[in-house]
Amino acid sequence: DATRCSICQKTGEVLHEVSNGSVVHRLCSDSCFSKFRANK
């Protein structure tokens, strides 16, 4: 199964994995990581 970025939905390489309870968010770049943090 292809890994997909939680923010931009791009498949491919994942730079960050953030687990939040039972959910793991995968983020492909620092910019997506920043957006993820801002959205929480």
Rank of each mutant, 00 (worst) to 15 (best):
R37Y: 05
T11W: 02
A2T: 15
E13H: 07
T11P: 03
N39L: 13
S34P: 09
E13A: 11
G12M: 10
S22T: 12
C32G: 02
S34Q: 15
I7H: 06
K35Q: 14
T3I: 11
S34V: 13
K40N: 15
T11N: 09
V24W: 05
D30R: 06
T3C: 01
S22P: 11
A38S: 07
C8Q: 00
S6V: 03
V24S: 07
N39D: 06
D30F: 02
K35N: 13
A2V: 02
G12E: 10
V24T: 11
R37T: 13
E13W: 01
C32Q: 04
L27I: 09
C8H: 02
D30Y: 00
D1T: 15
E17A: 01
C32T: 02
C5R: 00
A38R: 07
C5Q: 00
R37G: 14
T11H: 14
K40G: 15
R4I: 15
L27R: 04
S6F: 12
A2K: 15
S34D: 15
C8P: 00
R37W: 05
F36K: 03
C28H: 01
F33R: 14
H16N: 06
Q9L: 06
A2Y: 04
H25K: 12
K35F: 13
V14C: 03
V23W: 01
K40A: 11
H16L: 02
G21M: 06
L15W: 07
E17G: 02
S6D: 05
N39C: 05
C8L: 01
V14Y: 03
D1Y: 10
E17D: 06
G21S: 07
C8Y: 01
V23Y: 08
C5F: 01
I7S: 05
F33G: 11
L27N: 02
I7E: 04
S34G: 14
T11I: 07
C28M: 01
V14S: 08
R26T: 11
A38G: 12
G12Y: 08
R4V: 08
Q9F: 10
N39M: 13
D1R: 08
A38Y: 04
S19W: 06
G21N: 02
T3V: 04
L15I: 12
F36A: 13
F33T: 10
V18S: 08
S6C: 02
V14A: 08
E17V: 03
V14P: 11
S29H: 01
L15H: 12
S31N: 10
K35D: 13
D1L: 10
G12P: 02
E13M: 10
L27G: 05
V14N: 10
C8D: 00
V23T: 14
V24L: 10
H25I: 07
F36G: 07
G21Q: 13
E13C: 00
R26A: 12
H16K: 08
V14F: 10
S22H: 11
A2P: 06
C28R: 00
K35S: 12
H16C: 00
A38E: 12
S6W: 08
C28E: 02
D1G: 15
F36S: 08
V24Q: 13
V23Q: 15
C32N: 01
E13G: 05
R4H: 11
H25R: 05
G21D: 12
T11Q: 08
E13F: 13
K10L: 05
C32A: 03
A2S: 15
S29W: 01
C28N: 01
E17H: 05
N20W: 03
H16S: 05
K35V: 12
F33H: 13
S6H: 09
C32R: 01
C5G: 00
V24D: 09
T3Q: 15
C32L: 01
S6G: 06
V14K: 03
K10R: 10
S22V: 02
C28D: 02
D30W: 00
S6K: 06
G12H: 07
D30M: 05
S34L: 11
R37P: 08
K40H: 15
S19Q: 13
V14R: 04
H16I: 01
R26E: 05
V23I: 10
S22D: 03
S22R: 09
S19I: 09
C28W: 00
G12T: 10
L15A: 08
N20K: 09
F33M: 15
H16F: 07
D30C: 00
V18G: 03
C8F: 01
C5E: 00
C32K: 01
S34R: 13
H16T: 04
S19E: 13
T3K: 15
V18P: 06
T11M: 08
R4N: 14
K10I: 03
S29T: 01
R4G: 07
V24K: 13
F36E: 13
S31A: 10
K40E: 13
C32D: 05
F33E: 15
I7Y: 14
G12C: 14
A38Q: 10
V18Y: 03
K10Y: 03
R37Q: 14
T11F: 06
F33K: 13
R4M: 13
V24C: 07
Q9E: 13
H16Y: 03
C5A: 00
A2I: 15
N20M: 12
V14Q: 08
L15Y: 08
V18K: 06
S31Y: 11
V14L: 04
R37K: 15
V23E: 14
N39Y: 07
A2W: 07
C32I: 02
K40V: 14
G12W: 02
R26I: 08
E13R: 08
H16D: 04
H16E: 11
R26W: 07
D30I: 01
A2H: 13
I7G: 09
E13I: 03
E17C: 04
C28T: 00
G12Q: 06
R4T: 09
H25C: 01
C28P: 02
I7L: 08
Q9I: 02
C8K: 00
